[in-house]
Amino acid sequence: MKCLCGIPCATRTSWTHENPRRKFVACKFFNHETGQRGCNIFYWVDEEQTDWQRDVINVLVAEKHRVATDLSIVKARFTCLEHEKKRLTEELDKIERKL
């Protein structure tokens, strides 16, 4: 389907708090940050979610972000430990050479 701009419409997924994981079709010039919709072609592909569905999806999205943040912290700590290990190994080598 082409929009009024003459280009094929885009099927996208909403990740807003109000409409998480809902599919919609819109003009490719649609910009969710500014609300600009190009030629204003926009419609939902799926049915509206229940409050329960919306809440569950939002909790899962928040949990995904928390886990991703925890993983980043663990990776950073691991990197610090690798640097510390390298520093201590070099220091131990120096001490062993002195002995």
Rank of each mutant, 00 (worst) to 15 (best):
G6Q: 11
C3S: 05
W52I: 01
C9P: 06
L88H: 06
N40K: 15
H65Y: 07
E33A: 11
K2T: 07
R87V: 01
H32R: 04
I7V: 15
R37V: 05
T11N: 08
H32G: 11
V25P: 01
F29S: 12
W52D: 09
E48A: 13
A68E: 10
R66D: 06
I95C: 00
R54L: 10
W15F: 07
L92Y: 04
F24Q: 03
C9A: 15
A10G: 08
Q49C: 09
R12F: 08
K28L: 07
D93V: 02
E47C: 13
L71M: 07
F29H: 03
R77P: 00
L88A: 01
W15T: 15
K86F: 06
I7T: 08
C3R: 08
A10D: 07
K28R: 10
V25L: 09
F30N: 14
F30K: 00
V74E: 06
T11P: 01
V45L: 11
F29A: 05
G38L: 10
F24L: 10
F29T: 02
W52T: 07
H65I: 10
V45H: 01
G6E: 14
S72G: 06
T50W: 12
R66W: 02
S72M: 12
H17I: 14
L99Q: 10
V25D: 03
L4A: 15
L99T: 01
D51A: 15
T16H: 07
E47N: 15
V56T: 07
R97H: 11
A68W: 03
T13C: 12
T11E: 06
E90I: 02
C39K: 12
I7N: 01
L92C: 04
T79S: 12
Q49L: 15
K28S: 05
N31S: 04
W44M: 11
A76M: 03
Y43A: 11
N19P: 02
K64C: 05
K23G: 04
R77F: 14
R37I: 02
